[in-house]
Nucleic acid binder design. Structure first.
Lengths: 338, 338
DNA sequence: CTGTTAGCGCGTTCAC
DNA sequence: GTGAACGCGCTAACAG
């Protein structure tokens, strides 16, 4: 594999001249420029990114880490779409993405810090966002350029998020308008900020209509279809009445549908269902399920864009920036009884 | 950020001694070993991975590239599960994963070669496998350690694959046993080896039962639900009869279901459907859809394992190795009329 | 415009 | 057992 020295020799110049040609310096005679290019061509020369990183002390690599267990990680295409979005921007700006999938928050934190301390990445995109997230604190402490996907409750950090509060609010309003009056909310992990936001949106909508917010109607389920199903069964057995479910994820919406079938409830006439994330198959369920569509691809693009901009101009890191993308309620039959 | 020199100074030794301690050399006095460890601790020293890479001329990073457009990339969790599997193994062996998502085969090829030529990765895991894949040839030519996910038809390469032929054969046999006699096959991109394999399995099953293989019943569709739907409509309008669909992907199976509803065909009594990939939601469709479950997570693990073993002992690269994982037919109502 | 020099941080001889 | 010296391949500062 040819090095910069080989090219220099062949072109009869010094390595630094070659380096300058590569960098596109303009104070280089057109002639030597050509000679160097020629030499690079014949030697099939490609700069060694590692050596370059060492010299420039940057890697042009962004770390992306997520912590999810088993199939739960990707049961919906959210993360995949996120990656596509990040990748798209990264490509255009000549950056690479280092992927790290951890099994839990602790492991994720270690991995993030390792990537940074080993100087493998210039910055991080992080998508876990717990209520009091030690990862976030650690990253701030290490002074790492990073962008959070999702909101953070305590520290002011660069972040990109979809409007969970607003989205849940609109979705709940929709159910209310359809005449459902006792709407249960099925949430995921109570420690995630996403959960918090969605619950809040739900509450807001109820209060705006002077509907009672019954705490017992807000339930937390394991992140699976079955988790949703069983949680609702339990709620039902507890004697609490509800005629609709606002689900914090499509999986829960499917669990709700299962529950409705199990109880012989007609959807949507006797029982309304709204999900979150709009998985591609939602329209093929019977009845088709209403869901909030999250712009994951765009989210990924914005996050990468934001991070790369900060990397290019570190000044920007200090001005807190929180990008919020709107999401869209896709109304289908499961919640449409009028 | 502390360097090896800082540690050396603080411990009153030379950098090389520190290096040896890190490498775990045994001919180092226990005492200096302790001193060095202490120094590393107090300085919070972490070796710079880039410098190490340059000195050792390896990166401990594996590139994973895929070429898929838009939502198609991840409409099913195949790739996500693949990544999880790869990641799991990579973590345990202290390797990182560099992710590259391209929009098409050409772009993917460029990206792969770039990663290698820039020496950003030690090896590649590649999952596109077209009938005559220029990427494969290029990788062989560049003498890159790589593992293919999926089969290759021309070159002998390290590969990990699920048993597509066998799986399609068993699935088709299942339909035959259920009494379906005119089974159409909906395939994806005819240039992909996966498609070829699945069609072959389908043909085998028919021939084994002395059923005619009607070429017109094998149709190729755009990779989407609607693509499957429209292709089947077209087939129907052409006058070709069929009472079941063997789909090369769950999306097509859903398209087939749509088609059945459109034509007023009862599933499974008048019309059988089998899909491929067993998306998590298949069991929630009405009727629940039979599908072939692919062990994507395991596939990812095997691929990474294989590649890392080869990297550890390059001799192994020359003995062709093709790992094939069995898949499983998950029978549900859409194909069960007996 | 171009060459020389000096690192970037670490691993690895080759000596003592 | 340990240190000094050199090299990995490239960039950057300083000359000229």
């Amino acid at each position: 594999m040819a090095t910069i020295k080989d090219v220099a020799k062949l072109a009869n110049v010094s390595p630094s001249t070659v380096s300058r040609v590569i960098a596109g310096s303009n104070r280089i005679s057109l002639e030597t420029k050509k000679r160097v290019h020629q030499a690079m061509e014949t030697l099939n020369y490609v700069p060694n990114a590692i050596a370059r990183s060492l010299a420039r002390s940057n890697t042009r690599t962004i770390g992306f880490t997520i912590a999810r267990e088993a199939g739960q990680a990707f049961s919906n295409p959210f993360f995949s779409e996120l990656m596509r979005g990040m990748s798209t921007i990264a490509q255009t700006r000549d950056y690479n993405i280092l992927l790290s999938i951890s099994r839990n928050a602790e492991e994720e934190k270690e991995k993030c810090l390792q990537l940074i301390r080993e100087r493998r990445v210039d910055g991080l995109i992080v998508s876990s966002s717990r209520l009091k997230d030690p990862l976030i604190s650690a990253l701030i402490e290490e002074n790492v350029p990073f962008v959070l996907i999702g909101r953070n409750v305590e520290k002011p950090v660069l972040s990109v998020n979809n409007d969970n509060v607003q989205a849940a609010r609109l979705a709940t309003q929709h159910l209310l308008k359809q005449g459902y009056e006792k709407i249960a909310f099925v949430s995921g992990d109570a420690n995630l900020v996403v959960s918090l936001d969605r619950v809040n949106g739900y509450k807001q909508a109820l209060m705006e209509q002077n509907m009672p917010v019954v705490p017992e109607r807000i339930v937390y389920a394991d992140f699976s279809i079955d988790g949703g199903f069983r949680t609702l069964c339990r709620l039902w057995e507890s004697g609490m009445e509800f005629d609709a479910v606002m689900a914090a994820d499509d999986l829960f919406a499917l669990g709700a549908l299962q529950f409705a079938e199990h109880q012989g409830l007609e959807v949507p006439s006797n029982f309304g269902i709204v999900g979150f994330n709009d998985s591609p198959l939602m329209s093929f369920i019977n009845p088709p399920l209403t869901s909030v569509k999250i712009l994951a691809y765009e989210l990924g693009m914005e996050a990468m864009e934001l991070l790369l901009n900060v990397l290019a101009d570190p000044e920007k890191a200090h001005t807190k920036k929180e990008i919020v993308l709107a999401s869209e309620l896709i109304v289908r039959r499961s919640s449409k009884r009028k």
